[in-house]
Amino acid sequence: MSEKFEIRREVVVPGTPEQIWAAISAETAGWMFPSPLEIPADGSRPDSPIIADWEPPRELAIHMQGPDGWFNNLEYVVEARDESTAVVRYVHAGVFAEDWDNQYDGASKHTDFYLHSLGQYVQYFAGRPVTYVSAEGPEASSAPEAMGALRGALGIASGATAGDTVTVDVPGIGTVEAIIDYIDDWFVGLRTENALLRFYGRNAFGGNVDAAHHLFAADADGDAATAAWQAWLSGVFA
Rank of each mutant, 00 (worst) to 15 (best):
E3L: 07
E3I: 01
R8K: 15
R8C: 11
R9H: 07
V13R: 05
T16E: 11
E18G: 11
E18L: 06
Q19G: 11
E27L: 09
T28K: 14
M32V: 11
D42Y: 09
S48D: 15
I50Q: 08
D53H: 14
W54Y: 15
E55R: 08
P57F: 04
A61N: 09
H63K: 14
M64I: 13
P67H: 00
N73I: 04
N73L: 05
V77F: 10
A80S: 15
D82E: 07
E83N: 09
S84G: 13
Y90W: 12
Y90N: 02
V95R: 10
V95D: 10
D99L: 11
N102Y: 08
A107F: 12
S108A: 14
G119P: 12
V122L: 08
V122E: 05
V122S: 05
F125A: 00
F125D: 03
F125E: 01
A126L: 02
V133H: 00
S134Y: 03
E136R: 13
G137D: 09
P138E: 02
A140I: 05
A140W: 05
A143K: 07
A143L: 01
M147T: 02
G148V: 04
A149E: 13
R151T: 09
S158K: 13
S158C: 00
G159T: 02
G163M: 13
T165E: 13
T165D: 12
D169W: 00
V170W: 06
P171V: 00
G172S: 02
G174D: 02
T175N: 11
E177G: 14
A178R: 02
I179H: 15
D181P: 04
D185K: 10
D185S: 12
V188Y: 03
R191V: 15
T192F: 09
T192P: 11
T192Q: 11
E193R: 09
A195C: 00
L197M: 05
F199D: 04
G206S: 12
G206R: 10
G207R: 10
G207K: 11
V209M: 13
F216Y: 15
A218N: 05
A218Y: 03
A218M: 09
T226G: 12
A231N: 00
A231T: 00
S234F: 05
G235H: 06
V236C: 01
V236Q: 00
A238Y: 01
